[in-house]
């Protein structure tokens, strides 16, 4: 036996080195990986499993079935009309809320980009001293809890809130404006404000990385300021902008805290339905199915969006 082991050729040093590097890579990754598995993969698996069960009264029926998913697309002869769109579904609520949430999130995302881009631009091109201080200033809203920021909007938009009392004091209105709070618009405003700081940083990083000599070259070759922005700055900052848009769009679709607090009866989103199914209607399996479907739809939309704008092309151009 000893002879055998001795006669075996020693593994080449290169292989051992590769293995060591591979192990070290995973060792470095392991804290993050274990957290991801424990906090994301396992709950997701549980959710997926739950969505194949059904609720009967107070009990869970653990026979695997696709009934929950079938319920979401079960057709009905009589359409439910929502905003002029006919939904030929027997249970149209999830579909309608999905569409509504996507539209609201899209509006919030556009608002966020519109707000964040100029700020990031200013930070990247106009601020030369104390950049770190500026960046810290931008994150100040994050020093308070998300809930407090949402509540602050309730105070700003409210019946006796800052906007209404201000306008009243100026004599512009004599009755408080009632359309400010408790509607989808209030949700979009609040979401836009809550997420804007998340968008500034990626856009800023993209803008900061742009080689200034390209801009100079464009100017030297006769580009106007606007043309220079359109042909150089905008395309080169696209990866950051796209990342920011996704960073805002994906989490806001499923948000339920903001609609609960400022949305009123008309501002509900798909997240509220999931919460309602889990916590009020006592139908966790259906809630899980709605949540999984929502995730699949968002993933699909994001993939389509990236494909449509040619994200791979944008990325390769940067290199």
């Amino acid at each position: 036996m000893t002879d055998l082991t001795a006669s075996e050729p020693a593994p080449p040093a290169r292989d051992r080195e590769a293995l060591r590097r591979w192990l070290r890579g995973y060792a470095l990754l392991s804290p993050a990986l274990s957290v991801t598995i424990a906090m994301l993969a396992l709950p997701m698996a549980a959710l997926l499993l739950l969505s194949f069960w059904t609720q009967s009264g107070f009990e869970l029926d653990r026979t695997p079935t696709l009934a929950n998913y079938a319920e979401l697309v079960r057709p009905s002869a009589e359409p439910t009309v929502w905003f002029g769109i006919p939904f030929h579904l027997a249970y149209p609520v999830p579909a309608i809320l999905m569409v509504k949430s996507l539209v609201m999130s899209l509006m919030a995302t556009l608002a966020v980009i519109a707000l964040a881009y100029p700020m990031a631009y200013f930070l990247a091109f106009r601020v030369h001293r104390h950049k770190a201080l500026w960046i810290i200033l931008i994150t100040i809203p994050f020093w308070t809890s998300y809930l407090l920021r949402v509540f602050a909007w309730k105070v700003v938009l409210g019946f006796n809130g800052a906007i209404n009392s201000g306008l009243k004091a100026l004599g512009i209105i004599d009755k408080p404006l009632e359309f400010l709070l408790y509607n989808p618009g209030a949700v979009v405003i609040t979401l836009a404000h809550s997420w804007v700081a998340f968008a500034i940083l990626p856009i800023y990083v993209s803008l900061e990385k742009i080689d200034r000599s390209l801009l100079e070259a464009a100017s030297d070759l006769g580009d106007s300021r606007w043309k220079r922005f359109r042909r150089i700055t905008l395309p080169l900052s696209a990866p950051g902008t796209v990342a920011a848009a996704l960073l805002v769009f994906i989490p806001t679709v499923g948000d339920y805290v903001t609609p609960t607090l400022v949305g009123g009866p008309g501002g509900t989103m798909i997240g509220n339905l999931v919460q309602d199914l889990f916590l009020k209607q006592n139908n966790a399996p259906l809630g899980a199915a709605v949540a999984i479907t929502m995730m699949a739809i968002i993933a699909l939309l994001v993939a389509l969006f990236l494909w449509a704008i040619g994200y791979a092309r944008i990325r390769s151009r940067r290199l």
Binding site: G57, T80, W82, F83, Y91, P92, V93, I96, L97, K100, P184, P265, G266, T268, N272, L273, D276, L277, K280, Q281, N282, N283
Partner: peptide, 16 residues
């Protein structure tokens, strides 16, 4: 009660 829970949840969700 379960019927009421469901229709009330749905009614709220459909408001716009």
């Amino acid at each position: 009660q379960e019927g009421f829970n469901k229709v009330w949840g749905d009614t709220k969700a459909l408001k716009y």
